[in-house]
Write a protein that binds this DNA or RNA. Structure first.
Lengths: 137, 137
DNA sequence: TTGCGTGCAAAGGTTTTGCATGGCA
DNA sequence: TGCCATGCAAAACCTTTGCACGCAA
């Protein structure tokens, strides 16, 4: 269910997005940020507000790792521009999260659709493996 | 750290694998299975035995979804045969987990390696999206 | 006997839910 | 006013850890 009211928390979150840009963040990141500024926001409200924003399509939610917390990313209305061919790689060893922007991903998307009847969601999919540094060892 | 002793629990787990074949299962699946047969096995022991087996390479661990429990799969010594080109797709809508076996996905692997210096781990990676039935709606 | 395996209980962490209060329109 | 948003507390979950006991070699 999308948001209906423009509340204080909702506006504060947009301020957070402006300040942090297009970085990844977790619920506890947001919580700590506002605690530090003396503007406390309950984690429950953060979860619920972000959930609404995901429904609206202005925030993406990634489940990067089962053991750690979910990762969010503000994309605003740029979903179909900057983020269309954007996907994520996570190094299993050092934990680094790598942003990759590449048109060749479309081949994978088409392949899965044509040969396996599966509509890939690149925003939700994370590739696991080893980054350059860790693979050398 | 791999297993050193051949204990009762370890043998029971192998019996479970034989009975269930190459299906996916969770820790609670195993727990419920043995509870039902009157052979209780503590979840702690299941976690620890499976962890050893993952280290030995005879069991794969997938983190299918951040909110639900981890998914395991017995592969025995067939890792480098049947499971080399095996990928998983998870439908975001109905939750179905689809096994895909396809050589063309090696292209993805090679692309990530050559253009992005990333060594993909297909056993750990899950594609998210919509399955055939859910995509029709 | 030595050290690993076991399993209960408890703790750890993230996310969800209940419920009364407060705020938006 | 009516409904949604908030936030505290508590619950629900999955997973890990501590610790004493049991078992394999």
């Amino acid at each position: 269910m999308a948001s209906q009211y423009k509340t204080k928390n909702r506006n504060l979150l947009f301020e957070y997005f402006e300040e942090k840009g297009y970085e990844h963040f977790t619920v506890s990141d947001v919580s700590a940020f506002f605690d530090q500024k003396g503007q406390h926001m309950g984690v429950t409200s953060i979860y619920r507000q972000l959930e609404k924003m995901v429904d609206e399509g202005i925030v993406n939610k990634y489940i990067i790792d089962g053991t750690s917390s979910a990762c969010f990313e503000y994309v605003g209305n740029n979903i179909h521009h900057e983020h269309e061919n954007c996907f994520h790689c996570k190094c299993e060893k050092c934990g680094k999260l790598i942003h990759i922007q590449c048109d060749d991903l479309n081949e994978l998307k088409n392949h899965l659709l044509q040969h396996h009847d599966f509509v890939l969601n690149p925003l939700r999919t994370v590739f696991y493996g080893l980054c350059q540094e860790c693979a050398k060892r």
